[in-house]
Write a protein that binds this DNA or RNA. Sequence first.
DNA 1: ATGCCTATGCGACATAGA
Length: 256
Amino acid sequence: MKIATFNVNGITARLPRLLDWLAEADPDVVCLQEIKILDAAFPAEAIASAGYTALVHGQKGFNGVAILSKQPATETARGLDGDPDDDHSRYLEADVCGIRIASIYLPNGNPQPGPKFDYKLAWIDRLAARAAALLATEQPVVLAGDWNVAPLGVDVFSEAAMAADALVQPETRAKFRALLFQGWTDAIRALQPTGPAFTFWDYQAGAWPRDLGLRIDHLLLSPIAADRLTHAGIDRAVRGGERASDHVPVWVEINA
DNA sequence: ATGCCTATGCGACATAGA
């Protein structure tokens, strides 16, 4: 089964690119982030024509996540526990063919320090609580999404240029590492242990042609899912398309 | 030391992204 994550930065603006990529990459499941649309306005018909059902946890203007699937998908969670005042649409989870799959849009957290950074750190704690509960089920689980965390120095084009950014702060990295060390496998790093593996290039300052990227989109696998991991990849070429998102699709294949 | 781009919204610039 091929499972992908793709921050589309607006489903309306990106629909042609998404449909092109679905036809070309042929994933079974796609976790989308930043769909920036209400559930009722989601282009479900176009997605259905491509062969996918859609679970949608939308929001107007910004945020919003979805899970597209060729096989039947059963929703298992919408949002994270732990903060009744949090009205951001950033977490959606489903069962597909016995695999638990989460679409995650972790808060950016800039500027830091400040309330947005505090929200980010608290959100990681809430996600870690959910992740621990999922691990305890001993099911195959895939946590896929835009984590807005560059785990190591090699995951940014320049540590100096990024020093003040919420994506690389020691507290950010420590919380990500703590979650990872619950027992998750970072799929891209499991199959490509060294070197850059960027998944995002800013629209500004010629970041894409200069290859000034970040690795912030990740698929974390539970032990049983990791045992079944056969392939993983980053579809870099998508970044060079017309009206591209600033993120590209990242995917894994696990034995069904 | 800031903006550089891009998407969206009851738009005529502001907010958010990372």
